[in-house]
C-alpha cells in the first residue's frame, strides 16, 4: 500500500464521489424528463413500435393454420399478433377481451413455449379469437420479436411494420384503450 503516491491516493478516493455525481446528474435528468413528459421509465416496450417485423416461418398450431413473416407482410389490413401460452393465467384472463376485440381487428396467435396438445386444449376451453395460430415451441421467434413475457401483443400495419406494442393482458383497461386509440387512427 505504501507505494501509492499521495496524488494517486487522492485520485482514488475521489472516484466514489465522481460516480455518485454522475448517477445524481442522470437521475436529475430522468426526473426532469418525467415531469416534462419526455422520459417515461414505465414505457419499456415502446421502441418495438416502428420496427419491421423479424423474418420467421412457424408451423401450424391446431386448431389453426400456421404463418410466416411473408404471410404477415402481405396483409392489407392491420393484424394483432398475440403471444400466449396455456400455462399463463393472465392469458386466460384476457381471453374475454380478445374475443370481443376480434370484431375490430384480425388476431393471429403465437403459442409461446407450449406443448401443441396443451395449447390446443387451452384454445378449445377458453375460446378461439385467432384467425391463424402458429406454434413457437422453443420461443426462438419470440426472442426476435423482443417478447418479455406472455401475454404480449403487437399491432402490425400492412407491409409488416410494428405500429403498437403492448405488454400484459387486455383485461387491463389501459392496454385495451391504448390499442383502440391506435386502431382508430389506422386506415382499415
Amino acid at each position: 500500500m505504501s507505494e501509492i503516491s499521495p496524488s494517486r491516493r487522492r485520485f482514488l478516493m475521489a472516484i466514489p464521489l465522481a460516480g455518485a455525481g454522475i448517477a445524481g446528474v442522470a437521475f436529475w435528468k430522468m426526473l426532469s424528463g418525467m415531469s416534462a413528459g419526455s422520459f417515461d421509465p414505465h414505457d419499456i416496450h415502446a421502441p418495438a413500435a416502428g420496427r419491421v417485423i423479424p423474418d420467421f416461418d412457424l408451423p401450424a398450431q391446431a386448431p389453426g393454420e400456421g404463418f410466416s413473416s411473408t404471410d404477415l407482410r402481405q396483409q392489407t389490413k392491420p393484424v394483432l399478433i398475440n403471444f400466449f401460452a396455456s400455462w399463463c393465467i393472465p392469458c386466460i384472463a384476457e381471453m374475454d377481451a380478445l374475443l370481443s376485440l376480434k370484431k375490430e381487428v384480425e388476431i393471429w396467435g403465437i403459442a409461446y413455449k407450449d406443448k401443441p396438445e396443451n395449447a390446443e386444449g387451452f384454445i378449445t376451453r377458453a375460446g378461439n379469437p385467432y384467425t391463424r395460430i402458429a406454434s413457437d415451441r422453443e420461443g426462438r421467434v419470440a426472442i426476435d420479436w423482443g417478447v418479455s413475457g406472455v401475454p404480449e401483443s403487437f399491432l402490425i400495419a400492412p407491409g409488416g411494420h410494428i405500429i403498437w406494442h403492448g405488454a400484459g393482458g387486455f383485461d387491463n383497461g389501459n392496454t385495451l384503450n391504448a390499442l383502440k386509440a391506435v386502431l382508430a387512427k389506422v386506415p382499415a
Binding site: P6, R9, R10, M13, A14, P16, L17, A20, G21, G24
Partner: peptide, 13 residues
C-alpha cells in the same frame, strides 16, 4: 451521499 463522499475524498487519503 454527495456530502459524505466529498468528505471521504478529502479526508480518507
Amino acid at each position: 451521499i454527495g456530502g459524505s463522499l466529498t468528505l471521504f475524498a478529502w479526508r480518507a487519503p
